[in-house]
Design a protein around this nucleic acid. Structure first.
Length: 454
RNA sequence: GUGGAUGUAGCUCAGCUGGUUAGAGCACUAGAUUGUGGUUCUAGGGGUCGCCGGUUCAAAUCCGGUCUUCCACCCCA
């Protein structure tokens, strides 16, 4: 019985054409990473659930894909837990592995496990898929690729500056106009301190973060809803409405939260990064955004988010500094900073803006027509010469009608077709057809190769 | 996880208030053209109308459920 083929929610196949475009993205990202001295690593698709759980907050735990244990996974289950609907306990009994949710936590695990082989500061990059049991929509998939670069074991802000350069470099090569939004967790802490509500930090920042989206009034409304009193909200007002350029914002912020130690340190760090990047040749718009608050609770310093201009899709890149990510795995006081590029969203942006270069197709340069058994055997040798000269070539496997073979070449966007039939074998003069211009020429193999290489 | 929309041929979609063998364009295959593709003409193949159930003499069409995709929230790449 045949069944209707289907794919799990939020996952996709990639066609050869899409793969060519995706590889264009991966290639430029990898090239830039390498160019700045980062080294590649890979980690397994699955991790122990104990490694993953509790690292992404409650929300994150819910979005983790869990893998059912092999064998008789029900044998250790406690019936009273079943009757009591004790889901979390049942879950940990029947599942002890999960698919990775991001590349940062596995990297932290990696660093701790390999600490004796690693020379710090360790600059690594990692390009692998991650999985989230999120509800899919545009730009949001359940399986997607992250391209992470991190420096671990160095608290220098020069790393932040370098990452900004990496971001700028990559999007410059991809021809995407971007805004790099910067903030610092210490500034957020300062804000919370100054209004005397450090424990409300998350509530405040998630509300303020929506200012562009829902407007000032709604932000106030949400803050009230979350139980902040009018006095506190009034104190927040200058921060919420803080506008102008980066330097202007910093000056204002200094007046408001400069007296807190966290606040002043955050402002100092931000100032340092902005000063340095200003001297560099950076194309991207760099914008300090006091409302930027990325959800992951492990950021402790700089917070980075990159948005593509002219496209409404989530961020295409994001990250920040985390001072103690490896602490939970028993290696304290290792500071790291990194960002993650979302290859799938970059793909969507390039598609929407029609920015993929024409040349990204993955077809061969030449197709050798198959006129029959004898001719095909002859072509095999010719093909060897062509391929050894650096030109990709394929021989049509069946002696099909010429029309069919031409059509095949046309549809695969193979640029050149070489025809070698009985006549050509005798004379040693082969026929070359340019499929774009329609021009044909006759000549020795070396002449044809020269023509193709032009 | 909450709320809303969607689903008809490989793709983009028609199919009015339920009524015979469900259509178009593009794509595909073959021929016109026995060594020349992309244009044109002709013919052809292809659909359990997402899936399951209900109402009805009769369901692609109405109702319920379920799945998918999309949108908003949440969160995020």
């Amino acid at each position: 019985m045949s069944q209707k083929p289907s794919l799990p929610k939020g996952t996709r196949d990639f066609t050869p054409d899409e793969m060519a475009k995706r590889n264009f993205i991966f290639d430029t990202i990898n090239k830039v990473f390498k160019n700045y001295g980062y080294q590649p690593i890979e980690t397994p698709a699955m991790e122990n659930l104990s490694t993953l759980m509790g690292k992404y907050g409650e929300e994150g735990d819910r979005l983790l894909f869990k893998i059912l244990n092999s064998g008789d996974y029900l044998k250790n289950i406690d019936q009273t837990d079943v009757t009591n609907d004790n889901l979390s306990k049942i879950t940990t009994t029947i599942s002890e592995k999960g698919l990775r949710y991001d590349l940062t936590v596995p990297f932290a695990r990696y660093v701790v496990q390999h600490r004796n082989e690693i020379t710090f500061p360790f600059k690594r990059y990692q390009v692998q898929p991650v999985w989230r049991a999120d509800r899919p929509q545009k730009g949001r998939y359940r399986e997607f690729y992250q391209c992470d670069v991190d420096v671990i074991g160095s608290d220098s802000l020069l790393n932040e500056v370098e990452l900004i350069r990496v971001i700028d470099d990559i999007f410059k090569r991809l021809n995407i106009d971007i805004v790099i939004k910067l903030n610092n967790r210490k500034i957020l802490t300062g804000i919370a301190e100054i209004i005397n509500a450090p424990e409300r930090l998350t509530d405040i920042t998630t509300a303020i973060d929506k200012i562009d989206k829902i407007g000032v009034e709604k932000v106030y409304e949400e803050l009230r809803q979350k139980g902040l009193d009018e006095d506190t909200i009034e104190m927040l007002e200058p921060i919420i409405n803080l506008g102008g350029g980066n330097s202007q914002r910093l000056i204002c912020l200094k007046e408001i939260i400069g007296i807190t130690s966290a606040g002043s340190q955050g402002i100092q760090e931000m100032q340092y990064i902005l000063d340095l990047t200003e001297q560099l040749d950076i194309k991207a718009e760099i914008k300090m955004e006091q409302a930027l608050a990325r959800g992951l609770n492990y950021y402790t310093g700089t917070i980075i988010e990159v948005l593509a201009k002219d496209v409404t899709i989530g961020s295409v890149c994001g990250g920040g500094r985390y001072d103690d990510l490896t602490g939970v795995f028993g290696l304290p006081d290792v500071s790291g900073v990194g960002v993650s590029f979302g290859a799938d969203r970059i793909y969507d942006v390039l598609t929407e803006l029609d920015l993929f270069p024409e040349q990204v197709q993955g077809s061969a340069d030449v197709l050798l027509v198959n006129f029959g058994e004898q001719e095909a055997k002859f072509c095999l040798k010719i093909m060897e010469v062509i391929q050894n000269s650096g030109i990709s070539a394929e021989l049509y496997p069946n002696p099909a009608k010429l029309k069919k073979q031409m059509k095949y070449a046309n549809q695969k966007s193979v640029r050149f077709v070489i025809l070698i039939g009985e006549e050509e074998i005798k004379s040693g003069q082969y026929t070359l057809k340019d499929m774009i211009t329609g021009d044909q020429m006759n000549g020795m193999l070396s002449e044809l190769i020269n023509r193709i290489k032009q």
